[in-house]
Protein backbone atom coordinates (compact mmCIF):
# COMPACT_ATOMS: atom_id res chain seq x y z
CA UNK A 1 0.00 0.00 0.00
CA UNK A 2 0.91 3.65 -0.31
CA UNK A 3 2.93 5.26 2.42
CA UNK A 4 3.34 8.91 3.30
CA UNK A 5 6.15 9.43 0.81
CA UNK A 6 4.12 7.91 -2.03
CA UNK A 7 1.32 10.32 -1.22
CA UNK A 8 3.68 13.29 -1.20
CA UNK A 9 5.14 12.23 -4.53
CA UNK A 10 1.70 11.82 -6.10
CA UNK A 11 0.50 15.17 -4.83
CA UNK A 12 3.59 17.00 -6.03
CA UNK A 13 3.66 15.31 -9.43
CA UNK A 14 -0.04 15.93 -10.06
CA UNK A 15 0.56 19.64 -10.02
CA UNK A 16 3.29 19.64 -12.65
CA UNK A 17 6.80 18.66 -13.64
CA UNK A 18 9.71 20.86 -14.78
CA UNK A 19 11.01 21.19 -18.29
CA UNK A 20 14.69 21.18 -17.40
CA UNK A 21 17.82 19.09 -17.82
CA UNK A 22 17.44 17.05 -14.65
CA UNK A 23 13.83 17.43 -13.63
CA UNK A 24 13.66 14.39 -11.32
CA UNK A 25 16.58 15.72 -9.30
CA UNK A 26 14.77 19.06 -8.94
CA UNK A 27 11.57 17.46 -7.70
CA UNK A 28 13.51 15.06 -5.47
CA UNK A 29 15.29 17.98 -3.81
CA UNK A 30 11.93 19.60 -3.15
CA UNK A 31 10.73 16.36 -1.52
CA UNK A 32 14.06 15.95 0.32
CA UNK A 33 14.73 12.54 -1.17
CA UNK A 34 17.24 11.29 -3.73
CA UNK A 35 16.62 11.29 -7.45
CA UNK A 36 16.96 7.50 -7.54
CA UNK A 37 14.37 7.10 -4.83
CA UNK A 38 11.91 9.35 -6.67
CA UNK A 39 12.34 7.47 -9.96
CA UNK A 40 12.04 4.08 -8.22
CA UNK A 41 8.89 5.11 -6.37
CA UNK A 42 7.35 6.57 -9.51
CA UNK A 43 8.08 3.37 -11.39
CA UNK A 44 6.35 1.38 -8.63
CA UNK A 45 3.28 3.63 -8.64
CA UNK A 46 2.93 3.21 -12.40
CA UNK A 47 3.48 -0.55 -12.25
CA UNK A 48 0.87 -1.09 -9.55
CA UNK A 49 -1.54 1.21 -11.43
CA UNK A 50 -1.88 3.79 -8.67
CA UNK A 51 -0.97 6.25 -11.41
CA UNK A 52 -2.43 5.71 -14.85
CA UNK A 53 0.31 7.68 -16.55
CA UNK A 54 3.09 10.18 -16.08
CA UNK A 55 4.13 12.67 -18.73
CA UNK A 56 2.85 15.46 -20.94
CA UNK A 57 -0.94 15.72 -21.18
CA UNK A 58 -1.72 16.68 -24.74
CA UNK A 59 -4.83 18.55 -25.85
CA UNK A 60 -5.86 16.42 -28.81
CA UNK A 61 -8.44 18.96 -29.93
CA UNK A 62 -5.74 21.59 -30.38
CA UNK A 63 -3.91 19.05 -32.50
CA UNK A 64 -6.84 18.84 -34.86
CA UNK A 65 -9.03 16.13 -33.40
CA UNK A 66 -12.76 16.38 -32.83
CA UNK A 67 -14.51 15.12 -29.76
CA UNK A 68 -18.00 14.90 -28.50
CA UNK A 69 -19.96 13.56 -25.59
CA UNK A 70 -23.12 11.74 -26.64
CA UNK A 71 -26.07 10.46 -24.63
CA UNK A 72 -28.76 7.86 -25.26
CA UNK A 73 -31.91 6.86 -23.39
CA UNK A 74 -31.78 3.09 -23.67
CA UNK A 75 -34.64 0.81 -22.57
CA UNK A 76 -33.28 -1.46 -19.83
CA UNK A 77 -33.99 -4.68 -21.76
CA UNK A 78 -32.01 -3.46 -24.79
CA UNK A 79 -29.11 -2.04 -22.82
CA UNK A 80 -26.43 -4.65 -23.49
CA UNK A 81 -27.32 -4.98 -27.18
CA UNK A 82 -27.13 -1.20 -27.64
CA UNK A 83 -23.82 -1.09 -25.74
CA UNK A 84 -22.44 -3.68 -28.17
CA UNK A 85 -23.48 -1.54 -31.14
CA UNK A 86 -22.01 1.66 -29.69
CA UNK A 87 -18.78 -0.03 -28.54
CA UNK A 88 -18.25 -1.59 -31.96
CA UNK A 89 -17.10 1.79 -33.34
CA UNK A 90 -13.38 2.44 -32.96
CA UNK A 91 -14.22 6.17 -32.73
CA UNK A 92 -16.01 5.51 -29.43
CA UNK A 93 -13.25 5.95 -26.86
CA UNK A 94 -15.21 5.75 -23.61
CA UNK A 95 -18.68 4.58 -22.77
CA UNK A 96 -20.32 4.73 -19.34
CA UNK A 97 -23.59 3.55 -17.91
CA UNK A 98 -25.11 6.21 -15.65
CA UNK A 99 -28.11 6.03 -13.35
CA UNK A 100 -30.40 8.46 -15.13
CA UNK A 101 -33.08 8.51 -17.81
CA UNK A 102 -30.12 9.29 -20.10
CA UNK A 103 -28.38 6.09 -19.11
CA UNK A 104 -25.62 5.68 -21.70
CA UNK A 105 -22.90 8.32 -22.24
CA UNK A 106 -20.08 7.86 -24.69
CA UNK A 107 -17.19 9.95 -25.96
CA UNK A 108 -16.38 9.97 -29.67
CA UNK A 109 -12.95 10.98 -30.93
CA UNK A 110 -12.57 11.49 -34.65
CA UNK A 111 -10.27 13.09 -37.14
CA UNK A 112 -12.93 15.26 -38.73
CA UNK A 113 -16.11 16.83 -37.34
CA UNK A 114 -18.19 15.12 -40.04
CA UNK A 115 -17.09 11.73 -38.78
CA UNK A 116 -18.79 12.28 -35.43
CA UNK A 117 -22.11 13.01 -37.11
CA UNK A 118 -21.62 9.97 -39.34
CA UNK A 119 -21.06 7.58 -36.42
CA UNK A 120 -24.02 9.05 -34.53
CA UNK A 121 -26.26 8.69 -37.56
CA UNK A 122 -25.29 5.04 -37.91
CA UNK A 123 -25.90 4.41 -34.22
CA UNK A 124 -29.35 5.98 -34.56
CA UNK A 125 -30.14 3.79 -37.53
CA UNK A 126 -28.89 0.59 -35.95
CA UNK A 127 -30.51 1.13 -32.53
CA UNK A 128 -33.61 3.10 -33.46
CA UNK A 129 -32.77 5.48 -30.58
CA UNK A 130 -32.44 9.24 -30.73
CA UNK A 131 -28.86 10.37 -30.21
CA UNK A 132 -28.22 13.49 -28.10
CA UNK A 133 -24.94 15.06 -29.13
CA UNK A 134 -23.25 17.27 -26.51
CA UNK A 135 -20.21 18.88 -28.13
CA UNK A 136 -18.32 21.23 -25.84
CA UNK A 137 -19.19 24.86 -26.50
CA UNK A 138 -16.58 26.14 -24.05
CA UNK A 139 -13.99 24.50 -21.84
CA UNK A 140 -13.45 25.97 -18.38
CA UNK A 141 -11.15 23.40 -16.83
CA UNK A 142 -9.59 20.03 -17.61
CA UNK A 143 -7.27 18.30 -15.21
CA UNK A 144 -7.42 15.82 -12.45
CA UNK A 145 -5.74 16.67 -9.19
CA UNK A 146 -6.96 14.50 -6.39
CA UNK A 147 -5.42 14.99 -2.98
CA UNK A 148 -4.25 11.62 -1.65
Amino acid sequence: MMDELDRKIINVLQSGFPLSKEPYAEVAAQLEITEVELITRLQGLLENKTLSRFGPMYDAQKMGGSFSLVALQVPEEDFDAVADVVNSYSEVAHNYQRDHKFNMWYVIAAEAPGQIAEVNREIEQRTGLKVFNFPKLAEYYVGLQLPV
Partner: peptide, 24 residues
Protein backbone atom coordinates in the same frame (compact mmCIF):
# COMPACT_ATOMS: atom_id res chain seq x y z
CA UNK B 1 8.00 21.32 -25.41
CA UNK B 2 8.03 24.71 -23.67
CA UNK B 3 6.43 26.22 -26.73
CA UNK B 4 3.80 23.47 -26.89
CA UNK B 5 3.04 24.07 -23.23
CA UNK B 6 2.72 27.82 -23.78
CA UNK B 7 0.24 27.39 -26.60
CA UNK B 8 -1.74 24.75 -24.72
CA UNK B 9 -0.97 21.71 -26.88
CA UNK B 10 0.60 20.35 -23.69
CA UNK B 11 -1.89 21.08 -20.91
CA UNK B 12 0.78 20.22 -18.39
CA UNK B 13 3.38 17.61 -17.61
CA UNK B 14 2.13 15.64 -14.64
CA UNK B 15 1.18 12.38 -13.02
CA UNK B 16 -2.36 11.24 -13.72
CA UNK B 17 -3.80 9.31 -10.80
CA UNK B 18 -5.97 6.28 -11.32
CA UNK B 19 -8.83 7.59 -9.24
CA UNK B 20 -10.39 4.16 -8.71
CA UNK B 21 -7.11 2.83 -7.31
CA UNK B 22 -6.91 5.85 -5.00
CA UNK B 23 -10.35 5.09 -3.59
CA UNK B 24 -12.28 7.70 -5.53
Amino acid sequence: MCKMQQCGIIRRIAAVPNHYALGY
